[in-house]
Design a protein around this nucleic acid. Sequence first.
DNA 1: CCAAAAGTGTTTGCTCTACACCCATGG
DNA 2: CCATGGGTGTAGAGCAAACACTTTTGG
Lengths: 220, 220
Amino acid sequence: MPTHLSNLEVLAVAFSLREERLCVLLAPGSNPACWALPGSAVHVEQSFEEAARQKILLLTGLRETYLEQLYTYGDLDQAQKQERLISVVYFALLPAPAGLHGYTQDVERSTWFPVDKLEGLEKNHSDILAYALRRLRYKLEYSAVGFQLLPETFSLSELQQTYEIILAERLDKRNFRRRILEAGIIEPTSSLRGGEGRPARLYRYRPDAVAEVKTRRLFP
Amino acid sequence: MPTHLSNLEVLAVAFSLREERLCVLLAPGSNPACWALPGSAVHVEQSFEEAARQKILLLTGLRETYLEQLYTYGDLDQAQKQERLISVVYFALLPAPAGLHGYTQDVERSTWFPVDKLEGLEKNHSDILAYALRRLRYKLEYSAVGFQLLPETFSLSELQQTYEIILAERLDKRNFRRRILEAGIIEPTSSLRGGEGRPARLYRYRPDAVAEVKTRRLFP
DNA sequence: CCAAAAGTGTTTGCTCTACACCCATGG
DNA sequence: CCATGGGTGTAGAGCAAACACTTTTGG
């Protein structure tokens, strides 16, 4: 069986909320005129997931993020046909700093870009991003990943805002609360958050309750 | 950036119906006491998907099958830590020959095994299979892959039987028909199939109607 | 005419949706 | 006491589930 040379990288499509917009983390591409999904070689004795996690840690300082394998591309290099670039793409959700606003980053010149108006991405990366985005919206509907984009505790209004931003549609407040609470995936904490208006009860994710959710769609 | 040696293979988890049971295609493993998912090296100038398709063609004679990438494993070889085996796993649905019975194969000594009582699989392969099976059941609920396991034309009873076998539960005949037909994913042909009892109208898949289906679950 | 499988509607309960007002706090 | 966002219930519509008999063919 003939084998051949291949290069291996992991790519990360990392989403987060910045100033009430869904953003993706991009780094300068190999072509300096383009932005690209952050990627990294996989070191010896490191799993794909570890490599992706490490890259995200490096760029954002966040270690414990939601991470899931998305797809693996293995197309041949157009120039040198003998050489194949294997890109294992991971999908990550990073918590927004409290209040949906927050930190900026300039490690390796990577930055957050709103997903809705992106151009000048490196070849193929727009397709990968579009796929990841579709997957995110999809997941939000039948699974319960929303709060992975929020800090450890959050109000129901913040959570609803998150869903609205990603799904790009308005949701009914009462229905939203009922469904999320009935799904049993979050639980109230004892603390409140003040601000303008009446203080909001803060909730936290119940890590034990992941499995149950898949039964029915949250937003059919 | 340190790179290192890696071997690349594609694996196929190919499902089909044999004698009213859901079966998976297995080949002799590298350890001769074990069965394994059929795999193949990826040739130069061949995409992952082409490699998977070719392997299935070789083992079953079927070329146009439903195929989708499932997951990529890249664990380190336990023995030689410098060496990594990258396994890109594909998920395939093969049409049963008419009437849910059918052809046997003995190419490369590969055979069909019912998924419900499997043992003696090669390391990791049971997990991969379990994952693929979960995915199949899942897909069946919200998407419309069921008839990929049937021949080109089929009766509604056969289709229902397929769903019942895979989901391992009984479905109501009238409700099943209504939903499938309302989903608009199949259309009646002009032919009937005789047999015992009243002849059944045959249906065919409408390839144009894939996108629509995702809107709502077929079996909530 | 009997056996065997195909085909067909309606009622009931439940779930989703739409909708408007009171509550708690800070200034 | 007023502005701001947080929090709450219900009625109606639409969808899903349960259910049994008639039709067509072959032997």
